[in-house]
């Protein structure tokens, strides 16, 4: 019998589960959230349990996070994604002081003090600009996959000006740029720069303190990471699997809670 703790991050686009044993990641799963976030949470946990060869009763404590965190009946505790991303990022890079997380429908910047406690954060407002969704919509307008955007942008001599205020307006902007015959690489670069510009203003709001760690699905997009690095003038570290940082943090909090409760 294993002694596991679980973290489940139910995001707008994807749901992740991480299983932890003795402070080490045993397994994880990532799947699309879809229309039923409660089922997505169950499925993600079951998938992770399957990878670990473990049973549901092996899980001693479960923490849920993300926008669907309140809709997970088997969770022992709900913690916001701000706190979970901080814990998850510190696990991989303990000297992290600034976290940039770009997820499906929101982006956030989190400031940590020397002790790793959250001391400030900023989140984007009721708007998809500067998020994964923004990238998706813009890539679709250019008829490429999101992952292909950075490659397409290579070789662009300059970035086309793309508004960073509203996804709907930006999309029609892309369409008109295409109509004007602006080279696609320039538009692709413009899209990446637009996301970076939006996020950097948020970073400046909470104050840039090195070192910077990036999490969330968009951290896999090298084009966005490089655009951010250029604008911030410093290196950004990305964990091997940036999408599970929130769930990992949740599992770590679950572990501390369970240890505290059982005096282990």
């Amino acid at each position: 019998m294993q002694m596991l703790t679980a973290g489940i991050d139910i995001g707008s686009l994807s749901t992740e589960a991480v299983l932890l044993s003795d402070h080490k990641i045993v397994s994880y799963s990532i799947l699309a959230t879809g229309a039923d976030s409660r089922r997505a949470a169950e499925k993600a946990l079951n998938e992770a349990l399957g990878f670990a060869g473990a049973a549901p009763e092996d899980v001693r404590f479960t923490v849920s996070t993300g926008y669907g965190r309140t809709n997970v009946p088997f969770a022992d505790l709900q913690v916001t994604e701000i706190t979970c991303h901080a814990r998850g990022a510190l696990y991989t890079f303990p000297d992290t002081r600034t976290i940039i997380d770009i997820g499906g429908q929101d982006s956030k910047v989190i400031r940590l003090d020397e002790a790793g406690s959250v001391i400030d954060f900023a989140m984007n407002d009721k708007c998809a600009a500067g998020t994964g969704r923004f990238l998706e919509v813009m890539a679709r307008a250019l008829e490429v996959d999101v992952d292909e955007l950075p490659e397409l942008a290579v070789g662009a001599s300059r970035a086309a000006a793309v508004s960073n205020v509203c996804t709907v307006f930006a999309e029609s902007e892309i369409v008109s740029l295409i109509g004007q015959g602006v080279p696609r690489p320039e538009i692709a670069l413009g899209i990446l720069e637009s996301v970076a510009e939006r996020v950097v203003s948020m970073v400046k709001r909470v104050g840039l303190v090195p070192k910077v760690t990036m999490s969330g699905g968009v951290a896999k997009n090298k084009g966005v990471v490089q655009a951010l690095e250029r604008r911030l003038g410093m290196e950004i570290r990305v964990p091997d699997e940036p999408q599970i940082v929130g769930a990992l943090g949740a599992a770590l909090i679950a572990e501390s809670r369970w240890r505290k409760a059982t005096y282990l």
């Binding site: 913690v79 994604e81 701000i82 929101d106 959250v118 954060f121 989140m123 009721k126």
Partner: peptide, 17 residues
């Protein structure tokens, strides 16, 4: 009430902080 969920995340995170 349209932004109650996004406000809730910020406020809950603030309490955790």
């Amino acid at each position: 009430q349209s932004d109650v969920q996004t406000l809730n995340v910020r406020i809950a995170a603030f309490m955790e902080m």
